[in-house]
Computed example of a mutant assay.
Amino acid sequence: MAVRLHTNRYGKAETRLVRLVRDTPRHEIIDLNVSVALSGDLDEVHLSGDNANVLPTDTQKNTVYAFARDGIDGVEPFGLRLARHFVDSFAPIRRATVTIEEYRWQRLGDHSFQRPVGGEVRTASVDYDGSVATVGAGLKDLLLLNSTDSEFSGYIKDEFTTLPEATDRILATAVAAGWTYATSEMDFAKAYDAARAALIAGFTGTYSLSLQQTLYAMGAKVIEAVDEVDEVSLELPNKHHFLYDIERFGRDNPGLVFNAADRPYGLIEGTVRRA
């Protein structure tokens, strides 16, 4: 039986990095999780164990920390610096993909911080093949909730349907969104802030007849707000809140007390593109 090596890559995953900016008494904190994946002329390490073309993953990790010493001017530029270094410095490496998660901290003072409840994470990805760099961005675990202006009715019903139609419900989700920029030369921080604000505006400003409708509205807002984005993909878990039956305890419940269900949950996914 004939076999052959197909696509492959390797790298150092989840290098945890905290970089302080201490140029003034008012400090800044940059908290990242950096993953590197490399591919190229690597057949022999798989076929014969020849490591001549292998840049050790420990070296990749050390490079991340060393580059951080020079400063981190945003997650996308930092990812670009790393990806270009790995490809341009080592001939056997033909492609580098750097993915970064950024954990936000809330300022409490000049040098005191707190991780916000909810754990929203900013994400970025850079792919570089020696000539073209592709930069993506996004976020995950952005918790949003509308306490009204949401309905769900008119859906298919069969013998297994127990869900009652809702004309006034809580709509809650933990947004995961990702998009790719049309260029690698731009103000990434400004574009990210605009895209994030657009996602929130799409959620809060839509009278929702379904979470699918809200997803489309959020994606459309991003396309309208950021010229460099032609496509945005979203995952919206429906964080169900069910009206709890307390009438059995002699108390009415006019949309006040809910069971916040953990699982299972509806998962709505979609991609919105510029026409």
Rank of each mutant, 00 (worst) to 15 (best):
N51V: 07
S39T: 12
E28H: 10
N51P: 05
P164E: 05
S39M: 01
D50G: 06
L5K: 10
L42W: 04
V18E: 12
P25N: 09
V226S: 03
R107Y: 11
I30W: 08
E120Q: 15
S89G: 05
D50W: 14
R196F: 12
A66K: 11
A177I: 01
T15H: 12
A83Q: 02
V54R: 09
D88L: 07
F67S: 03
A166E: 15
D43S: 13
D41G: 01
L47V: 07
A220C: 00
E231W: 02
M186L: 15
S89Q: 09
F90P: 00
A189N: 12
Q114A: 13
Y244S: 07
P116K: 13
S210N: 01
D245Y: 10
S208K: 02
Y192T: 08
D50T: 04
T206Y: 07
R122T: 09
L47G: 00
A91I: 06
A133S: 09
R94E: 08
A37N: 07
A220D: 08
L42C: 02
V126S: 03
V229W: 06
N33G: 12
S208V: 02
E247H: 14
S210H: 02
S153V: 02
A177E: 06
D252H: 07
G130H: 05
N51G: 04
L80R: 11
I100E: 07
A191H: 08
L267Y: 07
M218W: 04
D23P: 03
T162P: 02
L47M: 08
D158G: 05
P116H: 11
F160E: 08
P116N: 09
S131K: 11
M186F: 14
K221T: 03
A197T: 11
L171R: 05
T148V: 13
V226N: 07
T57C: 06
L215I: 00
A174E: 14
F203L: 02
D110E: 12
I156E: 15
L139S: 00
G11S: 13
A176N: 14
A96N: 01
